[in-house]
Design a protein around this nucleic acid. Structure first.
Lengths: 264, 264
DNA sequence: TAGTGGTCTAGACCACAGC
DNA sequence: CTGTGGTCTAGACCACTAA
């Protein structure tokens, strides 16, 4: 009858805030990590390890700021970070409460390769195609270059623990067309780009579904016409220039997208 | 006001910042709308209508704040709002640039019904089922109630301009189980909830794909086994309590999810 | 009424990019 | 070097909630 990870057993009468002096002690004030970031990280850890249980209340932000010796805006920014992630809920006149203790990774600007290795899976990649092609009008428009300009087209099969997971198609603009198949077998595209100093900042994604083509089905080990989950993406860097455009399809039994939305 | 803001010398190059005195004039300082929100809205409009073209630069935030008579943090917060939406890109030591002028709606806490009517489609709903059922362990866990407690189960077919678009299944906790089929035919679930004073704050969504069941296929006008796009969702209110859980499937040719991610 | 978060101000110093 | 955004401070007043 008891499910201790659900909000069901949250005691509405539990009004005493959790003591956070221990969690937030000893911040690094000389290093290069912003204070608000250090505080937010500690709070996230406290929620993850149960120090701040689901439904518990935080001290008010003014007292919290005083306790650890930062200004109120700094403490506020840290708390807001967790609110944006959907871990805390704030109500004026009431206080700040923990929403959920469950593990939840925010959908972020990461690649499939990074997602998999972070979750402890052995990732392998087969480069199916790797060639310079003239940019189609659609690709040229997405990359912000002239149609017909040479772009690097790559097509990869991504496996997790030996099981086919996704077919990844990407187009890269001329400045990045010297990436080699060997690099792509070794690491994810995003790791390669980051190592080259490319700073990816904004990604626009569209998620949908369709039937697997006769070409994709044998690669993914599914029947032709079976459903696949699709994601197309255009990534922009610091200066607003397109860095990469991708069109991927995933085996739906093995991959889903998780998103947390917060009303501000 | 300023000597350097004469319209004559405004050159629309990439280097010279765009004059924003006109866009940001006459803010309402007495009303209930926060200043940063008013500023952010005007900036979004300026990008949408081309006053701030793609690639153009903004004045630096200190000057901008002075020009319209707000503090720097207030102006900064307004600009950050657009950065979070993927409309602006900022680089330390360089400046702030417009990324894209294209129309783009942020994925937000809205319902399918609201999405459709906002984009000008005629929306109709058929209530297929509407009954009190004992909560399964999975639903009970999501809603944070005891297994077996009575929950309202509804199943609807949503049509856009007369074309079947999605099958929507939802479970509602005991406090909301008096919603009637008539209400559900007339308006979206979210509109009903908002009218009842429910404040939805956090939604956790999972997007995937699967084959349509023999049950769903005729409703959606597709073949059994054809791909459908799926979304399951749990919504929480102000206090962190679950408000609703839904399991929807969409015709993939007619519906996709769009998301903008921003690296902070 | 007391306590909470929401907003706003007017400064300060720093890190980084480009000339 | 100058100019930019990134961070941080120490206050202030207000709106809302609950007792």
């Amino acid at each position: 009858m008891q499910a201790d990870s659900t909000p069901a057993d949250r005691a509405p009468t539990d009004r005493t805030p959790i003591e956070l002096g221990d969690v937030l002690h000893d911040l690094d004030r000389t290093g290069h990590l912003p204070l608000y970031h250090q505080i937010a990280t500690r709070l996230r850890e406290a929620i993850a390890d149960g120090t701040l249980p689901t439904g518990s209340r935080l001290e008010n932000e003014v007292a919290l700021a005083e306790r650890i010796g930062v200004s109120r805006p700094t403490m506020r920014r840290a708390i807001q970070d967790l609110v944006d992630r959907g871990l805390l809920v704030r109500r004026r006149g009431v206080g700040t409460q923990v929403v959920g203790a469950r593990v939840h990774r925010h959908l972020e600007l990461s690649s499939l390769h990074e997602d998999l290795t972070r979750s402890g899976h052995a990732t392998t990649t087969q480069v199916l195609r790797h060639e310079l092609v003239p940019a189609s009008p659609a690709v040229a428009s997405q990359l912000g270059i002239a149609p017909g300009a040479p772009v690097l087209y790559i097509r990869r099969l991504r496996l997790s623990d030996g099981v086919p997971l996704a077919v990844l198609e990407n187009h890269l603009p001329p400045g990045l067309s010297d990436i080699t198949p060997e690099q792509l077998e070794e690491q994810g595209l995003y790791a390669i780009l980051r190592n080259r100093g490319v700073s990816m900042r904004v990604a626009r994604q569209t998620i949908g579904a369709r039937a697997a083509t006769r070409d994709e089905a044998p690669l993914l080990g599914i029947a032709a016409g079976a459903p696949v989950l699709t994601m197309t993406r255009v990534v922009f860097d610091d200066s607003g220039a397109s860095v990469e455009t991708g069109s991927h399809c995933y085996v739906p039994d093995l991959y889903t997208f998780e998103i947390t939305l917060v009303e501000r």
